[in-house]
Amino acid sequence: MRRQLLLHTIQTAEAFDALLSTGVLVPDNSFAEPSYADAYGWMLRQMGARLATVGDGAIWFWARIRRQDLVDLCSRANGEVLLTCKVPREAVLLSHFGDWHAALNWRPHVPDLPGESDEEYGARLDRVVDDFDARIRAAGVRDAGVQHWPEDLRTEIEGSWEHVLEPLNYGRFESWQATMHLLRTDHVLEAVRLER
């Protein structure tokens, strides 16, 4: 039996209408924030390497989120549509929502160590980030996109981001996100138009 995941996504009314009319929702990359192009590009390469599906973009979902947080997101999405979906696990790349921000901010991801206090972690995080930042500045590429960094620094930072893709690293109460190349109508269990 194939494993399935329950996911939630908030889509525009136009995207939902396209899903209904074509049977498939593909990502609209025009919504991607240009300043996050390096992080999105890395995520797309990871999807290409780790998923059996193919595509030129990613549809974003919540794979684990506190109910109240999802309710809060829905309250700010007037006119949009909340889709609850059940999808095959092999079509989904999971990632840790909070730790994903290391990629969005072009900084190394520094995982917690077992038994490490908040103060110890903070001090170690500062050392790692300061050291990496100093090497980026020395290379003269601090304000250039990651794709323009020397290969050794780019490989190092992107390698640190891979930690965010391993669900065994996530805590019980943390938010997880998911990406897929496309969504089909047969994945959708429920659609709710969000109106105040």
Results as ranks from 00 to 15, higher is better:
A134P: 00
W176L: 12
Y170T: 05
D133V: 03
L7R: 05
L82Q: 10
L194W: 10
E33K: 09
E33T: 14
C85E: 05
L44W: 02
M1L: 13
H101Y: 09
E156C: 00
P27C: 07
V129I: 15
L44Y: 08
D28Q: 12
V192E: 12
E120K: 11
L7M: 03
D130H: 13
V81A: 01
S95M: 13
R154T: 02
L83A: 02
P34S: 11
L83F: 03
A15W: 02
Y40N: 13
D56L: 03
S30L: 09
A37L: 11
G115M: 07
L153I: 03
V128P: 01
N78T: 09
R196S: 14
D38T: 05
V81C: 03
T53P: 03
T179K: 04
L165W: 06
E116M: 08
F31K: 15
D131I: 00
D118N: 09
V192S: 12
T12K: 01
Y36I: 15
R89V: 13
N29T: 14
N78G: 14
A144Q: 15
L168D: 14
R89M: 03
L83R: 00
D69P: 00
R2N: 14
G79A: 06
R2D: 15
H96G: 04
R67Q: 15
I10Q: 09
P150D: 03
D56W: 00
A139S: 07
W42K: 06
G41R: 04
L93K: 04
L113F: 12
H181A: 09
A15Y: 02
D131G: 07
G159A: 14
